[in-house]
Write a protein that binds this DNA or RNA. Structure first.
Length: 470
DNA sequence: TTTTGAGTTGTTCGA
DNA sequence: GTCGAACAACTCAAA
């Protein structure tokens, strides 16, 4: 019997995998393949991908299948497999980045006449082309999008791994996962990600189970970097090791009776994830161009030294440095702190959001083009959501509010670990005579930087200069 | 077509 | 310490 191909992409799981289920239902032998491509480029996420592919390969081999690993253009790789096997069909899950969509249309063009192509919208609660305003245009503001999306109804329940699957036994060319070099960049940098993370479908499911006790207070705990009360599901979701429907169903299942504020807040985050992909789908330039075009004229700073100090976590603002160092150490940063460091880069330092976005994409294990681009634009104030331009995070106030004892700073900025909570967010207040720590001086005074940012943002909006200016 | 209400996550100042 | 108002003006989405 002729085989069918399942092209694994960001759906590295066996449970609730629409493409796999459909492929299994044919009853034909399955050829599973992953194609490493230009989008698999971040240092931290390449590390994760390596582990996740190993995990998937192991799961498949236990079922008698072999995951083929290839590199290159998907249309050429699939054509090659087709030529070697006389496969009849290819199954895959859609992605919504511009490059991914180009790959899909290339495949359609190259193979559409020879292979049956089956594409599934399997990554989001709602496919991006199914939600629109009354006039048929895409939503640009989250809340109306969320109302429209939730009005559609709950997503379907997750489906189990297909019970009957047979795999092709034909021997085909494959790379080994190790030979792709996905770990090289992380190793060169001494990125010890295995200390923090356990990639793979089984670990993602474990993580989901561990969520139950914190869901009820998620709306409070998720803002506290000193606690461990976020879901930490982002990398598992990014690689599709678990499906967004599984998360939805689990959170719903924890408290079927009535949804707590915490559970509602977590579900809302899932819709934010949808919304970011939705925006990227409808505005393919989202990663590079500000959605508000007047920001093309913004007078950004090109200071390499400022950018470097931010990247290294040597800004002299403890909460900022803690976040940037957490990122370098673990490939992850608490969401609240992501906003603080992003505000600091774009507003206190006036460095372009694209530079921050690029650093995040390279260093986050959960680096996701859609979320990253949409969120950076939001912080920078150039997205379509109305973020008032005067909303500039004060790194001291944010530290005092969300890391009240300073435990988070103490963990990631060890040179400040002997400072009491009352001083730790303002170490410059400790008199030099008594200070026993070595820590960078503030690179800017936030009060001054804030005023400078307000003026810059006013001018890009074409408004008159500050009334406070002398 | 026009109008109206609203827009994830904040900060500062003065009462 | 706590509270409310001010911070600009604009665009979006729906009535």
């Amino acid at each position: 019997m002729n085989p069918v191909i399942i092209w694994f992409r960001r759906n590295l799981r066996l449970i609730d995998n629409a493409a796999l289920i459909a492929a299994a239902e044919t009853g034909q032998p399955i050829i599973p393949v992953y194609i490493v491509d230009a989008q698999d480029c971040g240092t931290a996420s390449r590390w994760w991908l390596h582990q996740s592919l190993c995990s998937l390969q192991k799961s498949l081999s236990e079922l008698g299948g072999e995951l083929l690993i290839r590199e290159g253009r998907p249309d050429e790789v699939l054509a090659d497999i087709f030529a070697a096997t006389d496969a009849t069909d290819v199954y895959y899950s859609r992605r919504y980045e511009a490059l991914s969509r180009q790959q899909e249309s290339d495949i359609e063009a190259a193979l559409g006449e020879r292979l049956q192509i089956h594409a599934f919208d399997d990554d989001l609660l709602h496919p991006p082309n199914t939600i629109h305003t009354q006039t048929g245009t895409p939503y640009k503001i989250f809340t109306p999008f969320w109302r429209a999306a939730t009005a559609v109804g709950e997503p379907p329940s997750p489906r189990p791994t297909p019970e009957a699957m047979s795999f092709s036994s034909q021997s085909l060319a494959t790379r080994t996962i190790s030979s792709i070099g996905l770990l090289t960049a992380a190793a060169d940098r001494g990125f010890e990600l295995e200390k923090t993370w356990s990639p793979g479908e089984a670990s993602g499911l474990d993580r989901l189970d561990e969520l139950a006790p914190v869901v009820r207070r998620y709306h409070l705990g998720r803002d506290r970097p000193d606690l461990d009360e976020t879901s930490r599901l982002s990398p598992h979701l990014h690689f599709g090791e678990i499906s967004v429907r599984q998360v939805f169903a689990a959170v719903y299942g924890f408290e079927r009776e009535s949804l707590s504020d915490g559970a509602a807040a977590l579900l809302r985050q899932l819709y934010w994830r949808d919304f970011s992909s939705y925006l990227l789908f409808h505005f393919p330039d989202l990663p590079t161009k500000p959605l508000r075009p007047e920001f093309e004229r913004f007078a950004w700073s090109d200071s390499e030294t400022d950018l470097l100090a931010w990247q290294r976590g040597e800004t002299g603002y403890p909460i900022v440095d803690a976040g940037m160092r957490q990122l370098l150490a673990t490939g992850w940063m608490h969401n609240r702190v992501r906003m603080i460091v992003a505000s600091f880069l774009t507003k206190d330092l006036l460095i372009p959001w694209q530079a921050g976005a690029a650093w995040f994409l390279d260093n986050l294990v959960d680096a996701e083009l859609a979320n990253n681009s949409a969120s950076w634009q939001w912080v920078a104030g150039c997205g379509t959501d109305a973020a008032p331009f005067f909303r500039i995070f004060n790194p001291i106030r944010q530290g005092l509010k969300f890391d009240p004892q300073g435990d988070y700073v103490r963990q990631w900025v060890p040179e400040l670990q002997d400072l009491p909570g009352k001083d730790i967010h303002e170490p410059w207040n400790v008199s030099p005579a008594t200070a026993k720590f070595q820590y960078p001086a503030r690179m800017v005074d936030h009060g001054v930087a804030r005023q400078r940012a307000l003026d810059a943002y006013r001018s890009v909006k074409g408004m008159r200069t500050s009334k406070l200016a002398p």
